[in-house]
Amino acid sequence: MEALGRWGTPLLATGRGDDVFQPRWLTLALPALLRGATAEPPVELGIETDGLRMVLRIDEDGPHVFVRPDDQPETLLIAPPDVVVGFAAGTISPDQAATAGELRGDPDVLRAVFDITSRRHP
Rank of each mutant, 00 (worst) to 15 (best):
S93K: 05
G36T: 08
A13H: 08
V43H: 01
H121S: 14
A98D: 10
R119W: 07
E44L: 11
T9L: 13
G105D: 05
M54G: 06
A98Q: 03
V83K: 01
I78V: 15
E2R: 12
Q96N: 08
R57A: 09
D106V: 06
D108V: 02
A88W: 06
W25Y: 13
T49H: 04
L26C: 13
L33W: 01
P69E: 11
P23R: 08
F66Q: 15
L103W: 07
G8C: 06
P23C: 10
T38A: 11
W7K: 12
G8K: 10
A3L: 14
V113H: 02
L103I: 09
R68D: 15
L28F: 09
S118K: 13
P63D: 05
G90R: 05
V85T: 09
G5E: 04
L110R: 04
G15N: 12
D82I: 00
P10A: 09
G17Y: 07
V65R: 12
V109N: 03
Q22I: 07
R119K: 14
I78H: 08
L26T: 03
H121R: 15
E48A: 09
L77Y: 05
G105E: 05
P23N: 06
H121N: 12
G15I: 03
L34T: 05
P41K: 00
A79Q: 05
A112V: 02
R120N: 10
S93N: 06
H64P: 00
G51W: 07
G51C: 12
L34G: 01
V84W: 06
G86L: 08
F66W: 13
A13G: 06
E40F: 08
P81I: 04
D59C: 07
L103A: 11
D59H: 03
V67Y: 12
R35I: 00
P31R: 04
G15H: 05
T49V: 09
D106K: 07
R53I: 06
T38H: 12
V113T: 07
H64D: 11
L26F: 07
G105P: 02
D115V: 06
V55G: 03
A89R: 09
L4Q: 13
G101K: 01
Q72Y: 03
G8I: 12
P23L: 08
V55T: 15
A79L: 09
G36A: 03
A3S: 15
T117P: 01
P73V: 11
G15V: 01
H64C: 02
V55W: 03
L34C: 05
A32N: 03
A79V: 07
I92K: 13
L26S: 11
P10V: 07
D61S: 15
A13P: 01
Q22G: 02
D115A: 15
W7F: 14
A100R: 14
R119V: 00
D82R: 14
D70C: 00
I116A: 04
E102P: 00
P63E: 07
R24S: 13
E40A: 13
E102D: 13
T9I: 02
V109R: 01
D18M: 10
F114E: 04
G101H: 08
F21C: 05
